[in-house]
Lab assay of single mutants.
Amino acid sequence: KWEEIAERLREEFNINPEEAREAVEKAGGNEEEARRIVKK
């Protein structure tokens, strides 16, 4: 599940997989929260 979210974030925000994974981890697997983290 987290991998899927990280993949979507990576494609959408054009970030590297590591950044995407970190955002999802910080968000506890919550996609909306992960998006907010990435946008900062």
Score class of each variant (00 low, 15 high):
Lys1His: 11
Lys1Tyr: 12
Lys1Gln: 13
Lys1Ser: 12
Lys1Trp: 14
Lys1Ile: 11
Lys1Glu: 13
Lys1Asn: 15
Lys1Leu: 14
Lys1Phe: 13
Lys1Met: 13
Trp2Gly: 05
Trp2Phe: 10
Trp2Gln: 04
Trp2Lys: 06
Trp2Ala: 07
Trp2Glu: 05
Trp2Tyr: 08
Trp2Val: 07
Glu3Ala: 12
Glu3Leu: 12
Glu3Thr: 12
Glu3Trp: 10
Glu3Tyr: 09
Glu3Lys: 13
Glu3Pro: 08
Glu3Ser: 09
Glu3Met: 12
Glu3Arg: 09
Glu3Val: 13
Glu3Gln: 15
Glu4Tyr: 05
Glu4Val: 06
Glu4Gly: 07
Glu4Gln: 13
Glu4Ala: 14
Glu4Pro: 04
Glu4His: 07
Glu4Met: 07
Ile5Val: 12
Ile5Asn: 01
Ile5Pro: 01
Ile5Ala: 05
Ile5Arg: 02
Ile5Gly: 01
Ile5His: 01
Ile5Trp: 02
Ile5Phe: 04
Ile5Ser: 03
Ala6Gln: 07
Ala6Trp: 07
Ala6Pro: 01
Ala6Asn: 03
Ala6Thr: 08
Ala6Leu: 10
Glu7Gln: 15
Glu7Asp: 13
Glu7Lys: 14
Glu7Ser: 12
Glu7Tyr: 01
Glu7Gly: 11
Glu7Ala: 15
Glu7Trp: 03
Glu7Thr: 15
Glu7Phe: 05
Glu7His: 13
Glu7Ile: 14
Glu7Met: 13
Glu7Asn: 15
Arg8Gly: 05
Arg8Met: 07
Arg8Glu: 03
Arg8Tyr: 01
Arg8Trp: 02
Arg8Phe: 02
Arg8Lys: 13
Arg8His: 06
Arg8Pro: 00
Leu9His: 01
Leu9Lys: 00
Leu9Val: 05
Leu9Ile: 11
Leu9Ala: 00
Leu9Arg: 00
Leu9Cys: 02
Leu9Met: 05
Leu9Phe: 02
Leu9Gly: 00
Leu9Asn: 01
Leu9Thr: 01
Leu9Asp: 02
Leu9Trp: 01
Leu9Glu: 00
Arg10Met: 15
Arg10Trp: 12
Arg10Lys: 14
Arg10Ile: 15
Arg10Ser: 14
Arg10Asn: 08
Arg10Glu: 14
Arg10Asp: 06
Glu11Ala: 10
Glu11Met: 09
Glu11Leu: 09
Glu11Val: 09
Glu11Cys: 07
Glu11Tyr: 08
Glu11Ile: 08
Glu11Gln: 12
Glu11Trp: 07
Glu12Arg: 02
Glu12Lys: 02
Glu12Pro: 00
Glu12Asn: 02
Glu12Leu: 04
Glu12Cys: 04
Phe13Ala: 10
Phe13Arg: 06
Phe13Tyr: 09
Phe13Ser: 08
Phe13Val: 09
Phe13Glu: 09
Phe13Trp: 03
Phe13Lys: 06
Asn14His: 11
Asn14Ser: 10
Asn14Ile: 04
Asn14Pro: 13
Asn14Val: 05
Asn14Glu: 13
Asn14Leu: 10
Asn14Lys: 08
Asn14Gln: 13
Asn14Cys: 07
Ile15Thr: 10
Ile15Ser: 05
Ile15Asn: 05
Ile15Pro: 07
Ile15Ala: 06
Ile15Gly: 05
Ile15Met: 08
Ile15Gln: 05
Ile15His: 03
Ile15Trp: 03
Asn16Leu: 11
Asn16Asp: 12
Asn16Ala: 15
Asn16Pro: 15
Asn16Glu: 15
Asn16Val: 07
Asn16Tyr: 07
Asn16Trp: 06
Asn16Gln: 12
Asn16Ile: 07
Asn16Lys: 08
Asn16Ser: 15
Pro17Gly: 14
Pro17Cys: 15
Pro17Phe: 15
Pro17Arg: 06
Pro17Asp: 10
Pro17Ile: 15
Pro17Lys: 12
Pro17Glu: 15
Pro17Ser: 13
Pro17Ala: 15
Glu18Met: 09
Glu18Asp: 14
Glu18Arg: 08
Glu18Ile: 13
Glu18Pro: 03
Glu18Lys: 07
Glu18Tyr: 05
Glu18Val: 11
Glu18Trp: 09
Glu18Leu: 11
Glu18His: 12
Glu19Met: 12
Glu19Thr: 11
Glu19Tyr: 08
Glu19Gly: 04
Glu19Val: 13
Glu19Pro: 03
Glu19Ala: 14
Glu19Leu: 13
Glu19Ser: 11
Ala20Phe: 03
Ala20Gly: 03
Ala20Thr: 03
Ala20Trp: 03
Ala20Asp: 01
Ala20Glu: 01
Ala20Ser: 07
Arg21Ile: 13
Arg21Lys: 11
Arg21Gly: 06
Arg21His: 10
Arg21Gln: 11
Arg21Cys: 03
Arg21Ala: 13
Arg21Glu: 09
Arg21Pro: 02
Glu22Phe: 05
Glu22Asp: 11
Glu22Thr: 12
Glu22Gln: 14
Glu22Gly: 10
Glu22Met: 14
Glu22Val: 13
Glu22Leu: 14
Ala23Asp: 00
Ala23Glu: 01
Ala23Ile: 12
Ala23Met: 06
Ala23His: 03
Ala23Gln: 02
Ala23Thr: 05
Ala23Arg: 00
Ala23Cys: 04
Ala23Asn: 01
Ala23Tyr: 04
Val24Lys: 00
Val24Leu: 12
Val24Trp: 04
Val24Arg: 00
Val24Pro: 00
Val24Gln: 01
Val24Glu: 03
Val24His: 01
Val24Cys: 07
Val24Ala: 05
Val24Ile: 14
Glu25Leu: 10
Glu25Ser: 11
Glu25Gly: 08
Glu25His: 12
Glu25Tyr: 05
Glu25Met: 10
Glu25Val: 12
Glu25Pro: 00
Glu25Ala: 15
Glu25Lys: 12
Lys26Phe: 06
Lys26Leu: 09
Lys26Tyr: 05
Lys26Val: 10
Lys26Thr: 08
Lys26Arg: 14
Lys26Gln: 12
Lys26His: 10
Ala27Lys: 01
Ala27Trp: 00
Ala27Ile: 01
Ala27Met: 03
Ala27Thr: 06
Ala27Gly: 05
Ala27Gln: 02
Ala27His: 02
Ala27Tyr: 00
Gly28Ile: 10
Gly28Leu: 14
Gly28Arg: 13
Gly28Met: 15
Gly28Lys: 12
Gly28Asp: 12
Gly28Asn: 14
Gly28His: 13
Gly29Leu: 04
Gly29Thr: 01
Gly29Ala: 03
Gly29Lys: 03
Asn30Ala: 09
Asn30Ser: 11
Asn30Arg: 07
Asn30Lys: 07
Asn30Gln: 09
Asn30Pro: 00
Asn30Trp: 07
Glu31Asp: 04
Glu31Asn: 03
Glu31Met: 12
Glu31Tyr: 15
Glu31Lys: 05
Glu31Gly: 03
Glu31Leu: 15
Glu31Thr: 04
Glu31Ser: 05
Glu32Arg: 10
Glu32Gly: 08
Glu32Phe: 08
Glu32Ile: 11
Glu32Lys: 09
Glu32Met: 09
Glu32Ala: 12
Glu32Val: 10
Glu32Leu: 09
Glu32Tyr: 06
Glu32Gln: 13
Glu32Cys: 11
Glu32Asn: 08
Glu33Gly: 06
Glu33Leu: 10
Glu33Lys: 09
Glu33Met: 10
Glu33Thr: 10
Glu33His: 09
Glu33Trp: 01
Glu33Asn: 07
Ala34Val: 02
Ala34Leu: 01
Ala34Asp: 00
Ala34Arg: 00
Ala34Thr: 02
Ala34His: 00
Arg35Ala: 05
Arg35Ser: 04
Arg35Phe: 00
Arg35Trp: 01
Arg35Asp: 02
Arg35Leu: 04
Arg35Thr: 05
Arg35Tyr: 00
Arg35His: 06
Arg35Gly: 03
Arg35Gln: 05
Arg36Glu: 11
Arg36Met: 09
Arg36Ser: 13
Arg36Phe: 00
Arg36Tyr: 00
Arg36Trp: 00
Arg36Asn: 14
Arg36Gly: 07
Ile37Ser: 07
Ile37Glu: 06
Ile37Asp: 05
Ile37Gly: 04
Val38Ser: 04
Val38Gln: 03
Val38Asp: 01
Val38Met: 03
Val38Lys: 02
Val38Pro: 02
Val38Arg: 02
Val38Trp: 00
Val38Leu: 12
Val38Ala: 12
Val38Tyr: 00
Lys39Val: 15
Lys39Tyr: 02
Lys39Thr: 14
Lys39Ile: 15
Lys39Leu: 08
Lys39Phe: 02
Lys39Arg: 15
Lys39Ala: 14
Lys39Glu: 13
Lys40Arg: 14
Lys40Asp: 12
Lys40Leu: 12
Lys40Cys: 10
Lys40Phe: 04
Lys40Met: 12
Lys40Thr: 14
Lys40Ser: 14
Lys40Ala: 15
Lys40Ile: 13
Lys40Pro: 10
